[in-house]
Design a protein around this nucleic acid. Structure first.
Length: 150
DNA sequence: GCCAACGTTGGC
DNA sequence: GCCAACGTTGGC
C-alpha cells in the first residue's frame, strides 16, 4: 500500500465536492509523471492527502482512497473537452486515471504549517518549483502528518 | 497580477 | 539531440 498527495484547485474540484460525490474519476491529468504514478503504482486501497492548490489558503484538507485502478481517460477522446488530445486513440490511449473515494475531511493543514516541520522537509510538495499534481508521500511522512491532524 | 520554475513542442 | 519559444502551474 502506498501513500500519495493529490492536488486540486478548490474552484475546480474541492474536498466538499468529493464528500458529496463519494467517488470521482480523477480525469484531466496531462502530465506524464503523474500519469505514470497512477498507471504503474496506484492500487485500490492506496491513501492520499487531498490538497487545495492555487487558492487563498493552500492546504491539506482531507483524505481520499484509490477505489479503482487506472483506466483510459474518456476526456481525451471528447472533442468538446478542454482535455481533448488529438494524438490519443482508443487503441492507444495516452492518458489514464484512477478513481478516488472520499475518506474524510481534515482540519486544514496549510502549506505554511507544513513548511515548519523538519520531518517533512523532503516532501516533494515542498520542493522549490514543484508543480506535479500527484506526488508520492513516504510512509513516515504520512504518519507524521496524520499525527498533526489529530 | 506577477513571476519563477517547469514541461512540452518543434525547428534545426 | 539540442535548445529556444511557448504554455502552464501555483505561491505570493
Amino acid at each position: 500500500m502506498r501513500y500519495w498527495l493529490i492536488k486540486s484547485e478548490p474552484d475546480a474540484y474541492s474536498i466538499d465536492d468529493l464528500a458529496r460525490d463519494k467517488t470521482t474519476p480523477w480525469t484531466g491529468v496531462r502530465n506524464y509523471q503523474a500519469r505514470n504514478f497512477m498507471r504503474d503504482q496506484m492500487k485500490p486501497g492506496d491513501q492520499a492527502f487531498f490538497y487545495h492548490s492555487n487558492c487563498d489558503e493552500p492546504a491539506i484538507v482531507g483524505i481520499a482512497e484509490v477505489s479503482k485502478a487506472a483506466y483510459p481517460d474518456a476526456t481525451q477522446f471528447d472533442r468538446n473537452s478542454k482535455y481533448f488530445d488529438d494524438k490519443a486513440t482508443t487503441d492507444n490511449p495516452r492518458w489514464l486515471h484512477v478513481d478516488f473515494r472520499f475518506v474524510r475531511k481534515t482540519p486544514p493543514l496549510t502549506l505554511t504549517e507544513l513548511r515548519r516541520h523538519k520531518a517533512l522537509a523532503k516532501m516533494r510538495l515542498l520542493a522549490k518549483g514543484n508543480r506535479l499534481s500527484i506526488t508520492p508521500v513516504d510512509p513516515a511522512e504520512w504518519q507524521y502528518i496524520i499525527g498533526l491532524l489529530k
